[in-house]
Every structure is written in C-alpha cells, then in structure tokens.
Simulated assay, not measured.
Amino acid sequence: MAQTLARRELRLETPEIQAAGTIRSQESIGSGISIRNVVKRYGNFVAADRISLDIKPGEFITLLGPSGSGKTTLLNLLAGFQALDEGQILVDGAPIQNVPTHRRGFGMVFQSYALFPNMTVAQNVAFPMRMAKIDRTNTDRRVAETLEMMRLSDHAGKLPSQMSGGQQQRVAIARAIVMRPRVVLMDEPLSALDRRLRESIQIEIRELHQTIGSTILFVTHDQSEALTMSDRIAVMDAGHIVQIAPPAELYRRPQSRFVASFVGESNLIDAQVIGRNGRILTLRTPAGHVFEAESRNGIHNDKATVLVRPERIALHDAPVPGSMSATVTSALFLGEVLRIEVVLDDGQTLLIRCPDIAGRDLPPVGGQLHIGWGAADSWVLS
C-alpha cells in the first residue's frame, strides 16, 4: 500500500516526466478531484464547512461567491497552501492532503502576475521546466508551443516591464501550463484587468482549456466570468456550496433567493399560488395580476417567490392578454440594450432589459407601459 501511494505521489510531483524523460502528450486529459467533507477553521470562524465536491477529469469548475464565502480557502486547501482541519482531498483517487504543494504538480495562476522581472518572457515560461530538469530541446520546443498558444511568440525576448498588464497575465498563464499539468488552479487572475481585456482573456482561457484538457478550478466573484467560462459553477456562501450546476441551469433555475440575486440581475416577485398543473403554477400578485410560472420542486403552501430575469420581460405599447400596466421610474440607453425600471400598481419595482431595436425610443419617466412574460420566462424558487 505504501509503495502504491508513493508511486501516486511521484506522479503528482512530476506529471510531465515519463520513464524515458519525455513530455506527456497534449491530448492527455486532466485529473479527477474528489473533495470530501472538508473543514477549515480560523479560531471560531469556519471558512470551509464540510464542503464536498466531485470534479470530473478535464472539467472547468468555477467557485463563485462574495468575499468571505470560502472560495479562496477551498482553492488554497487544494493547492496545499493551507492544511485541512477535517476531511479529505483525492486526486485521481489518491489522497493529497499530506503531499507538499511543490509535489502536487499543479499549475497555478494568481491575480498578481509574480513574474521574474530580470527574466525574459521565454525564460519566465521555461522556469518550471528548468526546475524539473527537463532537457533543453524539449524545453525550447514546449516553450515555443506555449507562447504561440498564448499569442506571445513575438514577445519572447521582452522583459515583463516592457509588456502591458494583459500580456503579463498571459505570460503567467503560459508559465502555469507549460508543463501541461493535469490540474490548473486560478485565483481571480483577471480581476486587475479592464473590462475589454478581461473579456478577451476569458475567451482565450476557455479555448486554452479545450486545447490542453487540464482540469481547471477557477475562483472569481464576477458572475459574468463564471457564466462565460465554466462547465459548472459552484456558488458558495458562508463556507458552503449552496448550488452547483452548468451556467445555463444556474442562471435560469436557481435554487434559492441568494443564488438568484447573486448570479445575474433578478426580479423576485412574491405571489399567491392559486392553481397547479404539473410543473406549471398559476399565481396571483397582491395587486391581483394572474400569471403562470414553471416550478421543478414541489411547492406545498400557497405562497411562492417567483424569479423573472430582466431580459425575459416583454414590453407592449397597448394592453395584451396577460399583460399588466407599469409606470416608468428610470430609463437608460446602454448601447446594445435599454435598461428600464418600472413600478407596478402594488408598489413592486421591476427591472427590464430589452435590445435596442429600430424605432424603439426610451420611454419617458412617468410614462405608462404594459409588460408581461410567459410561464417559461419565470421560475418559482424553492
């Protein structure tokens, strides 16, 4: 048993070096990770409270949550920067909680680029391979491949100080993946970049993941980043994973008020249940408006909270069946969309986002609109 564990630990330590000293092929997929009942305490504060999570080989998982939710703590426990108080973490079935950080073989990318200022881009990227004592020929080939992958080939001879923030972060990512690790950990790597650059690198990281096949665990508090990049998103709050699901499911069918409010913009409407037909509920607002909404979970009382996303609300210039009247309180032109706030007769405030189309003007504040949505456009929270 001890020999088996030693072999597994050796594989974690040097995942790229085979018996003949060659580098693993680019087609290899990432590791499976199993996090079981993990606990981390700081005094009386529980930062990770019996967290369990299974990550498939080659999956892109994002930990999403507000500050203090436990997402960075969980990443640090996986990296080995902090020790578990309870629980177990397994990589490809082998427990790693007693394996030192430098022997886990993970690629790591952080918010700070942490580049060596006196080394060129190529030298920074080659550094992990030099430390692993991989021969010069293989190192040069892999560095060239990785720089091309990250669109940095023309900058190989530059120092970090001669590059923009976005280029430096690309170098940091290149250094993390040059060994083609089975697992890559990313802790808010894009938070210091401006919006346009951040969106560009999001796409590059997603394409990179599809190319190298590593398992990626990505930490962010930015829900748009999580929705753009992830195979699944684990939403965290107060040391717990409160929901984990693919982006579309998480956005369209959140399981709680917290998830509905944290992931995207939300309209949460309190209503009375007056009818049921399978998964479709008929509801009535305090002002008497009747509408339908979809419900996956059973609702066993006569009150419900309904989620309607701003982009799912339709605008009408005149009353149509099922619509309700609303008074405009704010209207903003945001380029591709109009952002409109309205108040209903019962005082409920709703946010509407609609595309900017030809012939549609911003409605005046104080003007009347007629709005509505269908059962498929709303979701009853459990």
Score class of each variant (00 low, 15 high):
residue 298 G to N: 14
residue 304 A to G: 02
residue 17 I to L: 15
residue 74 L to D: 01
residue 104 R to P: 08
residue 81 F to I: 08
residue 22 T to M: 13
residue 347 G to D: 06
residue 238 A to M: 14
residue 89 I to T: 06
residue 230 S to E: 03
residue 48 A to P: 04
residue 151 R to L: 11
residue 339 R to K: 13
residue 47 A to C: 13
residue 279 R to I: 13
residue 233 I to Y: 00
residue 160 P to E: 00
residue 297 N to L: 15
residue 6 A to G: 06
residue 362 L to K: 04
residue 323 S to N: 04
residue 138 N to F: 14
residue 294 E to L: 15
residue 204 E to G: 12
residue 225 E to A: 08
residue 131 M to H: 14
residue 171 V to M: 04
residue 219 V to Q: 07
residue 341 E to D: 12
residue 376 A to L: 11
residue 131 M to V: 15
residue 18 Q to M: 14
residue 350 L to G: 03
residue 183 V to D: 02
residue 316 H to I: 05
residue 339 R to Q: 13
residue 24 R to D: 12
residue 70 G to R: 02
residue 315 L to G: 03
residue 260 A to C: 08
residue 334 L to D: 07
residue 145 E to N: 12
residue 131 M to A: 15
residue 323 S to C: 05
residue 374 G to Y: 03
residue 237 D to V: 11
residue 377 D to N: 11
residue 125 V to Q: 03
residue 309 R to W: 09
residue 159 L to G: 01
residue 59 E to V: 12
residue 76 N to A: 07
residue 75 L to C: 05
residue 43 G to M: 04
residue 147 L to D: 10
residue 255 Q to N: 13
residue 128 P to D: 05
residue 159 L to A: 09
residue 381 L to F: 00
residue 47 A to V: 12
residue 208 L to V: 12
residue 366 G to P: 10
residue 297 N to V: 14
residue 301 N to E: 12
residue 303 K to H: 15
residue 162 Q to K: 08
residue 311 E to I: 03
residue 290 V to Q: 13
residue 124 N to R: 05
residue 204 E to A: 13
residue 334 L to E: 12
residue 8 R to L: 15
residue 5 L to Y: 08
residue 346 D to Q: 02
residue 58 G to D: 06
residue 90 L to K: 02
residue 250 L to M: 08
residue 104 R to N: 09
residue 15 P to H: 00
residue 7 R to F: 02
residue 46 V to Y: 05
residue 348 Q to A: 11
residue 240 H to S: 06
residue 125 V to H: 02
residue 374 G to H: 09
residue 375 A to S: 13
residue 3 Q to M: 13
residue 198 R to H: 09
residue 148 E to V: 10
residue 180 R to I: 08
residue 216 I to A: 08
residue 265 E to A: 07
residue 32 G to E: 05
residue 322 G to A: 01
residue 83 A to K: 14
residue 57 P to I: 08
residue 103 R to D: 14
residue 108 M to S: 04
